[in-house]
Computed example of a mutant assay.
Amino acid sequence: MDDREAEVLDRIGRGLLYTESEAAFQNPRRRADLIFEYNSTRPGATDQRRELLERILGSVGARTVLLSPFHAGFGSNVHIGDDFFGNVNLTFVDDVEIRIGDGVMIAPGVTLTTTGHPIHPGLREDFRRFSRPIVIEDKVWIGSHVVVLPGVRIGYGSVIGAGSVVTHDIPPMTVAMGVPCRVVRPITDADR
């Protein structure tokens, strides 16, 4: 890695702006062909699908179910724990890491995006952007058509209601929903 690449990676790591051209040296880490192959496999080809997931993702736990199709910018920046269930049309915009804990369930049509763009149009040339990691802790359930934005952490055991746009961290053991997503109540023993 040369000095310029190291400087760009430093900016990316700090959530600062960078351009498509500056980050092009990372393109070999993209897994688009493998994702296409995964999405083309038969649902019953479990061994083949598992082998592909292990090649696509940064790490993948035991007993993982990821229904087709799914999409990812890289794939290699996604880390999934044990006992994960991802329903159809899950999209990972993983310019930086997305870390998903154990026992997480994600409904259809969810987007996890680590990347955003500047508000001012003069700053968006060459697809200038910023990226911040997403963390989804253990036992989280994310409802259909949720969008999780850059830098968000969703705490242990939380539930995110369908159609929400998660712009800020969600504390553990809460139900949150809305646009923007807000905590509406704690999860208690009464929910058993």
Rank of each mutant, 00 (worst) to 15 (best):
I136P: 04
V65G: 02
V184P: 03
C181Y: 13
V65H: 13
I98S: 13
R63Y: 15
D102F: 05
T64F: 09
V96L: 04
W141K: 01
V148R: 07
R153M: 05
I134C: 08
F74P: 00
D138F: 00
V135K: 06
H120C: 04
S144N: 11
E137W: 03
V146C: 12
V152H: 06
P171L: 06
S76P: 03
N87G: 04
V166K: 10
D126I: 01
G81Y: 14
R124M: 04
I80E: 03
R63D: 15
R129D: 07
M173D: 14
V147E: 07
P172A: 04
E125Q: 14
V152M: 04
R185D: 13
M105C: 01
M177Q: 12
I142S: 12
P171I: 01
G157D: 13
L112A: 01
L67V: 00
S164N: 10
D189H: 02
R63F: 09
L66S: 03
E97R: 15
T114S: 07
N89Y: 15
T174Y: 10
V159S: 02
G103K: 04
L66P: 02
G178K: 08
I142G: 08
D189N: 08
V179T: 09
V65S: 08
G143S: 12
G157R: 10
S164P: 10
I136T: 01
H117C: 00
H120E: 15
I119H: 07
V184S: 03
H168V: 00
G178R: 11
F84P: 08
R99E: 07
G151Y: 07
F74G: 00
F127I: 00
R99P: 01
Y156W: 14
S59C: 01
I142Y: 01
H71V: 01
Y156G: 00
T114Y: 14
V96S: 04
G81P: 13
V135S: 11
I136Y: 05
F92T: 03
R129F: 03
S144Y: 08
F84N: 05
E137A: 04
P118H: 08
I187S: 06
S131C: 10
T115C: 10
V159Q: 02
G86S: 04
I170R: 06
D126V: 00
V165M: 12
A190Q: 15
E125P: 10
D94K: 12
D138Y: 00
F70Q: 06
G143W: 10
S68K: 11
G151E: 12
V148N: 12
P171S: 05
G73R: 08
R124F: 04
V159L: 11
R128C: 14
P108D: 11
V147G: 02
F130Q: 03
D169C: 05
F74N: 07
G157F: 13
E125Y: 14
T113D: 10
D191T: 02
V78R: 10
P186I: 01
A72I: 03
H120A: 15
V88G: 00
I98Q: 03
V93P: 05
G61C: 10
I160C: 11
V104S: 06
D126E: 04
S131Y: 12
T111F: 08
S131I: 01
F85N: 02
V175N: 05
F85W: 15
R132W: 02
N89R: 14
L112W: 14
F92E: 10
V183C: 06
I154R: 11
V65W: 13
P172W: 09
L123N: 07
